[in-house]
Amino acid sequence: MAACPDQEERLDLHAAGALEDAEAVALMAHLESCEGCRRAFDASVELLALVALPPITAQEKSELEELPRRTLSEWRRSARKQGLGLRTLGGLVAAAAAVTLVLLVPGTWRFPGEARTAQPTAGAQPVEELDAETMAAIEAWAGLEPLDAMEDSDRWDEDFDFELGETL
């Protein structure tokens, strides 16, 4: 005798433990009166017992209990490593910005001992380089000797050759 066609699906679900309580009670009442459904139910239980997983061992149980702690510690380790990488990247970006600023913006860097030149104000016109001819004309107008004549260092030494303790 075969199982009732309208009960076959419910028999498999009940064998797997997936039926709700009200349906399970109604199916158990049907199983008491139907021999074919009882045999189909027993076959389903036997088949599911073959594919069921064995009970977990003590080692597996301890590993399952340890899993949340290990997962959390691994997550913290990776977050720490990622944070370190981001801090390193931030430091490199800051260093690159400083180097770029030094190289691209004139007047921000000077060597030790180098005199700092006055920076033009916001509204000031840029000063153009004067050529030698214009500079000579300005010196002649001001009654100055050309600067080339001042480069003679021997003359300077003669003009200011005096002993220590003498006054001018």
Rank of each mutant, 00 (worst) to 15 (best):
M1F: 14
A2N: 05
C4I: 05
P5V: 05
D6I: 01
D6P: 04
D6V: 07
E8P: 01
E9T: 10
L11W: 12
D12Y: 05
L13P: 04
H14F: 14
H14T: 04
H14S: 12
A15N: 05
A15Y: 00
A16K: 00
E20P: 09
E20K: 04
A22G: 09
A22P: 00
M28P: 03
H30K: 05
L31V: 00
S33G: 06
E35M: 07
R38D: 04
A40Y: 03
F41M: 04
F41V: 06
D42R: 07
A43H: 07
S44L: 03
E46M: 06
E46G: 00
L47D: 11
L47Q: 01
A49R: 15
A49M: 11
P54Y: 08
I56L: 14
I56M: 07
T57L: 08
Q59F: 06
Q59R: 14
E60F: 05
E60I: 00
K61Y: 15
K61E: 01
S62T: 05
S62E: 13
L64R: 13
E65R: 15
E65I: 06
E66L: 12
P68K: 11
R69G: 06
R69Y: 15
R70V: 05
R70N: 10
S73E: 07
S73Y: 13
E74C: 13
R77K: 04
S78Y: 11
S78Q: 10
R80E: 00
K81D: 15
G83A: 15
L84V: 06
L84A: 13
G85S: 09
R87N: 04
R87F: 11
G90F: 01
G90S: 11
G91Y: 02
G91H: 05
G91C: 07
G91T: 04
L92W: 08
A94G: 11
A95I: 03
A96F: 09
V99Y: 07
T100E: 13
T100I: 00
T100S: 10
L103K: 10
L104W: 15
L104Q: 12
L104E: 15
V105W: 14
V105Q: 12
P106K: 13
G107A: 04
G107W: 02
G107M: 03
T108K: 10
W109S: 04
W109I: 02
W109C: 03
W109N: 06
F111I: 02
P112D: 11
A115V: 08
A115N: 01
A115S: 06
Q119V: 08
P120A: 12
T121M: 10
A122R: 15
G123F: 05
G123V: 06
A124M: 08
A124H: 12
P126L: 08
E128T: 02
E128Y: 12
E129N: 02
E129S: 03
E129W: 13
D131H: 01
A132H: 03
A132N: 08
A132V: 04
E133W: 08
T134F: 12
T134I: 05
A137Y: 12
A137P: 02
A142C: 07
G143C: 04
L144I: 07
L144K: 05
D148H: 07
E151H: 15
E151W: 11
R155W: 08
W156M: 11
E158G: 09
D159E: 12
D161I: 01
F162R: 15
F162L: 11
E166A: 12
L168E: 13
